[in-house]
């Protein structure tokens, strides 16, 4: 079982990813694709005159302030546009894809943060109308049902809170929780960088391999979005996933290259 997460940065290589998914599924690999759409959401928000507002939590984590209106833009970009572009392309390649967000069949459920504490213009503040949270539970029944009947699930945020509210969640962590739930041997996380870099500006500073006891060191090196990927990787490994590979989405045959060890391999 393979879980592949494709980051939502600019210029997602939909076609290259879908070709790999076609090849892998044709070879009999059970595969679930998860994707983000953060760039697409920013573009849509700007175009609708509601520029994205990012807030930084007191612990330093940056997140999209997601009130109800933003949540609708988020759904339109993630589920309405990106998810269906992936599904369409996969169908063109003969892969019978089914696109789902976490609300569909409660495929990804979790806790909505009642309030988040942020620092804005130097002031500490509590935000209560923020629809964000984290994925904790996956409906494996639905995913297995689809996989067993020849469908390839294509998942994306949002998830659904236990109170059945649509919530914005971190895609990397959702992919990790999903990989654990699926008992996946491998989790591939593709984004617009070669992998975990010691020095962001030096692509030769790629960390090729991270053994279990080097995870803390990797956490210290990782910054920004990469930190979340390494956190996701750790959760996946601790949950029983055999290997997590942080690969480069921009390569030709990006999933295949990652599976060949191109990028940062954590195990």
């Amino acid at each position: 079982m393979l879980v592949v997460k494709v980051g939502g940065g600019e210029g997602i290589p939909i076609d290259a990813v879908c070709q790999d998914v076609r090849d892998l599924t044709q070879q009999g690999e059970r595969l679930i694709l998860v994707h983000g759409a953060s760039h697409e959401t920013n573009v849509l928000s700007e175009a609708l005159g509601k520029p994205p507002r990012f807030v930084t939590s007191v612990s330093g984590m940056q997140s999209r302030y997601t009130d109800r209106e933003t949540l609708m833009l988020f759904c339109m970009a993630y589920v309405g546009k990106l998810n269906k572009l992936f599904v369409e392309r996969l169908q063109q390649l003969g892969v019978n894809a089914v696109g789902l967000c976490g609300a569909d069949g409660r495929s990804m459920e979790g806790t909505r943060k009642a309030a988040i504490k942020v620092v804005e213009d130097g002031k500490r503040r509590v935000l209560r109308d923020d629809f964000t949270g984290r994925v904790e539970r996956v409906n494996m029944g639905l995913l297995t049902l689809l996989l067993d009947n020849g469908y390839t699930p294509v998942l994306c945020p949002p998830a659904l809170s236990y109170e059945s509210e649509i919530i914005n969640v971190d895609g990397d962590r959702a992919a990790a929780v999903l990989a654990v739930a699926c008992k996946a041997e491998t989790l591939v996380m593709l984004s617009n960088v070669p992998g975990l870099l010691r020095d962001l500006d030096d692509t030769d500073s790629l960390v090729r391999c991270v053994e279990r006891d080097q995870l803390d060191a990797a956490m210290d090196i990782a910054q920004g979005r990469m930190k979340k990927k390494v956190m996701g990787a750790r959760e996946a490994l601790e949950g029983g996933v055999g290997t997590v590979i942080l690969g480069d989405a921009r390569l030709e045959q990006p999933i295949r290259r990652a599976l060949q060890g191109c990028g940062t391999v954590l195990r």
Binding site: V58, M61, Q62, K113, I116, K117, N168, V169, R173, K228
Partner: peptide
């Protein structure tokens, strides 16, 4: 104030 929930944001 609510205590700090482990936070990942998106």
């Amino acid at each position: 104030a609510p205590d700090e929930e482990e936070d990942w944001g998106e």
